[in-house]
Amino acid sequence: MLLTESDLQAIWLTLRLATVVTAILLVVGTPVAWWLARSRSWFKGPIGAVVALPLVLPPSVLGFYLLLAMGPNGPVGWLTQTLEVGNLPFTFWGLVLASVFYSFPFMVQPLQSAFETVGDRPLEAAATLGASRLDTFFSVVVPLSLRGFMTASILTFAHTVGEFGVVLMIGGNIPGATRVASVQIYDHVEALEYASAHRMAAIMLIFSFLVLLALYAWRSEEGKKY
């Protein structure tokens, strides 16, 4: 066997994390991106800037502040304690929350530009045909923005898989709960177990390459329809 059990466990956890984060961000990021694309409010500039902020801080520093915020003395920690879900650091859901925050721009920005390219005309046409706004969104905007949704999801998923500094800080490297593949590879490297590191990195790269290749192929097929 090329990979040890703990390697496989880390890869499985990573896939689960990236899937959950992508799903959540599709739900949370879409309205935000839509609002950013359509709004003329003066508020749009500041919000757009805030969305991009996770890109600016070094991940481990961002992770440190998330650790403070989610900790027993932080505002998020206060909230989760009040809701009686306990503290989030060192748990899978803590990782999910941190990753949602960290990957937010990767979902919102491609969606925003996809929505912007849709333009006013299809929306006006739908309105004259009496479609509700929600109906318009799902029947007109979503099909027209399908490539944007693909790009945003791919970027979010890949970014979460490759995430390192944040998860290391929030996760505490617990096998099965927070030890994701990137951390596992890093552990191999730091422990000078280069052969294990190479194997795992190679398998991750090949796997990701194949998945991305398939998605991009599908995306360009899909793009030809419109």
């Binding site: 027993p72 290391l168 490297n173």
Partner: peptide, 17 residues
């Protein structure tokens, strides 16, 4: 819970997490 190094271990403890 495992800190990457002793510094991160300190941070985990100092923040009360």
């Amino acid at each position: 819970v495992f800190g990457e190094n002793i510094t991160q271990t300190y941070q985990f403890t100092a923040t009360g997490n």
